[in-house]
Design a binder for these strands. Structure first.
Length: 220
DNA sequence: TGCCAGGCCGGGT
DNA sequence: ACCCGGCATGGC
């Protein structure tokens, strides 16, 4: 197919530019795969800084482990309070723990035996885990080649004419996955770089960003 | 001070 | 198949 070629060139150029500008981002910032999964739920529509405080509370309590956390699930609301939406997120976290312990004995290695598509189906079936949270878990906790689409990816791509702002999650995802070689390390770095540049140059109601490092790629 | 942050669900059209 | 209100804290 030939329509892929153009997207491919642009998306490769954007990655190269961002990587050259910012360098490696070292994502996901967490000590263990379990912490990645917890963080993926807590960061829904929330500043990462707030999530760190919640994760620290869990760690200092000694509960950064599926079984311990499930055993002490009544204290989750207090521990994750700084991350916002804490009553809602407590339910979501417990729903995930329930699944993770019942299906995989709370062990990441057991989860790794399953196919990516199967896991995505299981994860998104949990109330509180949508496509982005599931994909974050698949990529950053399990190392699967799944491109994570978030609000920044949506903003940046649409502002540069790659797709419409209202494009479906799966549509945007397949644009990236068709254009970028299927390597987890590449998907990892690319998404992290999009978040980095998005935070610094792609505020919510700005139609376009003059100071954006991506900008000059399109004017060439 | 008001706006925003690495979404998702459930109820209504 | 969309559209929208709700969910909550902390930083600037």
């Amino acid at each position: 197919m030939k329509s892929g070629t153009n997207d491919q060139k642009i998306l490769h150029a954007i990655f190269n530019r961002l990587y050259e500008y910012y360098g490696p981002q070292h994502w996901w910032p967490a000590d263990t795969a379990f912490e990645v999964m917890v963080g993926a739920i807590l960061t829904q529509n929330t500043n990462w800084h707030n999530v760190v405080q919640a994760l620290n509370n869990i760690r200092y309590a000694g509960y950064m482990d599926a079984r311990f956390l499930y055993k002490h699930r009544r204290s989750i609301p207090r521990l994750i309070r700084p991350s916002g939406f804490y009553r809602l997120k407590s339910k979501r976290l417990v729903a995930f723990l329930d699944y993770f312990i019942k299906e995989y004995d709370g062990r990441i290695e057991a989860m790794k035996r399953k196919r990516t598509g199967t896991l995505r189906g299981e994860l998104t079936a949990i109330s509180g885990i949508g496509p982005e949270t599931a994909d974050s878990i698949l990529l950053y906790a399990l190392g699967r080649p799944v491109f994570v689409i978030d609000a920044y990816t949506r903003r940046i791509g649409s502002r540069h004419g790659l797709y419409g702002y209202d494009a479906l999650y799966d549509t945007i995802q397949s644009i990236f996955e068709r254009a970028i070689p299927r390597r987890p390390s590449l998907y990892n770095e690319y998404h992290a770089l999009l978040v980095r540049v998005g935070k610094e140059h792609c505020a919510k109601h700005e139609p376009l960003c003059d100071s954006c490092p991506v900008q000059h790629i399109l004017s060439s």
